[in-house]
Design a protein around this nucleic acid. Structure first.
Lengths: 343, 343
DNA sequence: AGGCTTAACGAAAACGGTTTCGTGTTAATA
DNA sequence: TATTAACACGAAACCGTTTTCGTTAAGCCT
């Protein structure tokens, strides 16, 4: 077992000073060619690599970024994470992930774990708990300390920082518009309770598109499910008591459930009833028929978030006091057409 | 913007030495009650938290663990990661993830990025590139340096280290046995080319179960697809030219594709043909009919891997030289029964 | 009063680097 | 020959902690 070698050890072995070794390895002009060669050869032989922790301490920069998300076993977040990791790695940053599990407390704990020098900045999507509690002090503390923060998808306007959003409203709008173009009039929405800003935005887009086409909004055609443990009976009841020819679902799971159910009832997709679901995930792709989906481009979102964060991180270190200026970027969603709609 | 306060600043402000502050905050007996109270109050007021990087340097322990996986947008890996993160966090460790994207080079680069002090140990699943290249020098270097390493799922026996495996052979065996118990005789296997140790193990289990039941193995009933971009024609051809009443698939995607296809051909699942697929993911759950699956218990796997790693990490630091002893743990898979088989 | 213990605190080394600012030697110049 | 500039290297500070080992002064004992 050969432990990593340090500058000090090299210096002692070669009977020079630590500074000489450090400079030689950086190819400094100060050091003679002879000495440099000798030191570099020795270092290479022993596979010397500077210790990241020491460098972090010296530079006051860790080259780590912290990502806190509600869930990792979730296609959308995973996708965004992929984008973050990809871009960050390319820029020489590593990514530390913490999962809040949609709990306010865990989110706070995770932030505190990382905030004491472990990372140069944060990228996060708020936990359901935090959104429900409407308490953002932990974020405030971070930004007050001058630590860069980028919020994505599940954000809040109570905090001043960079943000990356999906045009949920616009996505729902386009989906409903597509239904209307296909001649559908009895358009339903299957959504969650209004905890999340996303569901609200999607519902808004749904309403707007209908209003825009002078279709009266029938509140009975809006089904709000309390959580992700889908209640089959509620869906059953919903489709029995309403005449519906198109359904917009705020997530894949709801869509798949509804599709399976209406097919069992003998309805044909897309002839009798069309479906569009939010978030183009694996389920949409492999559903039968394929589910036309509003794709969120998570990877792009992650890349954008990482880019914004790293820019702030590298800027901050140069300039001390400066007017902070924050931006909000919108990632456009697109409709991926599949068999569940008439194209 | 109030930057984090340091011991030095507290010391200067209160006109005591740094050591006194440090001790006071640790409630050392050496410091008088008066002084302690004063310092603690001051520290609390300015929300003092020790700098993690400095502590890491001092302790030569980062409390970070590195996870390198081939892919993160992949249900199984995500699940394992969840288990790792959960356990690690509970023990006060953070997790740095790097995605190798199934490339040998990226795997090597990622390891090198983290190996210079950024993490205390590694948990990884080998990239396809690495398995194909059969080159494990980067792992050897890590273990030679005494850095703990735990391999999971996609491993190699060329490296001595802790391992966590899934009983792929046994899982396939049980699946085929179930088919046989249901009276099926013409049992097919849909798998990948033999790059991965997992596919090999699964194929072995398949063959063993058939041999065990004195069913002759018909090589035509084994379909090997070159990659995940499923070739519909190959599947079509396969089901047309073979009489088959049960199919074991080495992953969900293959299973879903095959199920959709045979259903289009008018066959009924599970009456005419049964399906079992590896890795109980989201697709199996929401397939129509639901796909009976061999569940891998990724979360448990991750927890076990993290536990093994952290034990090694904390042990190493105590004891210097010691007989290294490595273990291999097997996570048992279980069959989740759904509509694609007769139960 | 002199010697002792003990309480309360500070100085300094250490972790592993980087970087600024000397400093001694040599060779070129006046 | 004395002065100086260039060269090659080293000492030391610094990043923020922890921890060992003094050091000082007060209080006690004989």
């Amino acid at each position: 077992m050969k432990k990593k070698i340090t500058l000090k050890q090299i210096a002692k072995e070669l009977e020079v000073s630590i500074s000489t070794v450090s400079k030689a390895l950086k190819n400094s002009e100060e050091i003679s060619a002879d000495t440099k060669e000798k030191i570099q050869a020795f270092a290479k032989f022993y596979n010397y690599k500077p210790n990241n922790v020491a460098i972090s301490l010296k530079n006051k920069r860790t080259k780590n970024i912290g990502v806190i998300i509600p869930d990792i076993v979730h296609h959308f977040f995973t996708t965004v994470f992929r984008g973050i990791e990809q871009y960050a790695n390319k820029q020489g940053y590593n990514v530390i992930v913490c999962v809040s599990d949609d709990s306010f407390d865990r989110e706070v704990i995770n932030m505190e774990m990382l905030a004491n020098g472990s990372v140069d900045g944060f990228i996060m999507s708020l936990s359901a708990g935090t959104q429900r509690k409407n308490d953002f002090n932990h974020l405030k503390e971070i930004t007050d300390q001058g630590i860069p923060l980028v919020l994505f998808d599940r954000t809040t306007d109570k905090i001043d920082c960079d943000k990356v959003l999906i045009d949920d409203r616009e996505g729902a709008f386009k989906a409903v518009q597509k239904f209307i173009k296909n001649g559908r009039k009895k358009i339903a929405l299957v959504t969650t309770e209004n905890y999340f800003s996303v569901s609200n935005a999607r519902e808004a887009g749904y309403r707007e598109a209908l209003a825009n086409a002078d279709i009266e909004i029938d509140e009975h055609r809006i089904l709000k499910l309390p959580n992700m443990e889908v209640d089959e009976n509620a869906i059953h009841e919903f489709f029995n008591s309403n005449r519906i020819d198109a359904v917009l679902c705020v997530n894949e799971i709801f869509a798949i459930h509804c599709m399976n159910l209406v097919q069992k009832k003998g309805m044909r997709i897309p002839e009798d009833i069309s479906f569009i679901g939010f978030t183009d995930g694996i389920l949409s792709k492999y559903a039968n028929p394929g589910l036309t989906a509003i794709a969120q481009h998570g990877v792009e979102m992650g890349e954008v978030a990482a880019k914004m964060l790293i820019e702030k991180v590298e800027y901050e270190s140069d300039d001390e006091e400066e007017e902070e200026t924050y931006q909000t970027k919108i990632i456009e969603s697109t409709i991926i057409e599949r068999g569940s709609t008439i194209n």
